[in-house]
Design a protein around this nucleic acid. Structure first.
Lengths: 222, 222
DNA sequence: TTTTTCATAAATATCCAACATTTTTGATCT
DNA sequence: AGATCAAAAATGTTGGATATTTATGAAAAA
């Protein structure tokens, strides 16, 4: 419409990014009806581009499509989070085990680098949790998590990991806003995880990984 | 256009079914370029409907989309099959373990029923492997596999299972055409699997399940 | 002959405007 | 209050048109 199309990104991809962001931050709420016309007014694009965008987001599990009844933001109950994390744990455990078995020294380097970046990002967000730093923090989490498993030699495991991670983003950012994260514990855990990975201690790494993922659930402690 | 729209299926869904079928049977070959215009001539629908259909199929992993370069049928090398089966094994094992733990007697009933239907379907296809029976056989496999895990109480595991199963369909049907299936072994294995499930013997069931999935790989024995 | 360059053709991505169909809404009647 | 049904809204679909990008193939250069 009026936005300058830089690089080779397609309109639909731009729309998808915008919607993803707004879903992650809760500007578009869970279960909210997504009417094509309204979205067009807000984000631009033609009706088809918008429909296609919504199809893509439904691929990613952020939006749900019902025949003849349009689209809505995927609901986000605690059960949903539990389910996502359950699958994440299984996928990431398998992938991590394979990565440890197959990964070479350059992979180890990428893990260390991602861990380093994550620590910086956690420091930054713990101090000033504005939206931008929050996004950068989440991106660092994603990069670290991705680095851990990227040597697993299974495109589908990697792809799944990414999708599941993105699905849990909303919850993670909410947790950040509510300030229920234990930064100290995270740091210790992640440090131990990296050490276990470098020591090729699969069982230890696996259980630390599970702990780290499970920690995303403890939003309300009694 | 001229096709009668029965029930509440949407055009895009009809197109998607047709394309799914043709991909499964190899009428649309792996890596084949999918040009919108050509597809429209063959299947009908407008350019937008066709694009949306292709987006949906790319959701399901049957088609791949590349920005500015359109769509093509997902490639189907032996590595792809291996990768799909690897993930299937992990997902189904977890789901089956959970189903055994959580399933009640009505679930057991559904497993037995699905197993019974599968046996019939295997008999039928072993005798007369035409396209229709082949599809019915595959559908019975899917129903059986689905029944085994449906009590796992995780919508995402169930959803993933379905997608992965559909992705491996092409390979399964090819295996059927090439007649490299060991019907006897399948029957014994499936029988044992059901018995293990009913006996709530998770480890035994798990390893039989793995075997059964792995068997989809043995296309060319040396 | 091989490679490069460039115009041309093909295909993708997008938009607008309209129409058919389905779902939702709201007013009316019992 | 509950059922009925017409009007309004939203979805799904289409045709045609137009940028923009990618692929193609022929002429020019090395």
């Amino acid at each position: 419409m009026f936005a300058i199309k830089k690089s080779d990104e397609t309109i639909v991809e731009l729309l998808a990014s915008a919607l993803r962001r707004d879903i992650a931050f809760g500007a578009l709420l869970p279960d909210q009806k997504l009417k094509i016309e309204e979205l067009r007014k807000r984000y631009g694009g033609s009706n088809h581009s918008m429909r296609e965008t919504l199809r893509i987001l439904s691929t990613e599990g952020l939006v749900e499509a019902t025949a003849q009844r349009g689209f809505r933001v995927t609901s986000a109950t605690e059960d949903d989070l539990r389910d996502i994390l359950l699958v994440r744990i299984e996928i990431e455990r398998v992938a991590l085990a394979r990565a440890i078995a197959a990964g070479d020294v350059t992979w180890e380097g990428r893990v260390i680098a991602a861990h380093h970046a994550l620590r910086k990002a956690e420091d930054a967000v713990a101090e000033a949790p504005d939206d931008l730093t929050a996004l950068e923090w989440d991106e660092a989490c994603r990069a670290f998590s991705h680095a851990l498993i990227e040597a697993c030699d299974s495109p589908r495991l990697i792809d799944l990991h990414g999708k599941l991670f993105d699905q849990s983003r909303r919850f993670r950012l909410a947790q950040l806003r509510e300030n229920t994260l234990d930064w100290k514990a995270r740091r210790v855990r992640q440090q131990a995880l990296v050490e276990a990975v470098l020591a090729k201690d699969t069982t230890e790494a696996s259980s630390l990984l599970q702990e780290d993922i499970q920690a995303e659930l403890k939003t309300n402690d009694p």
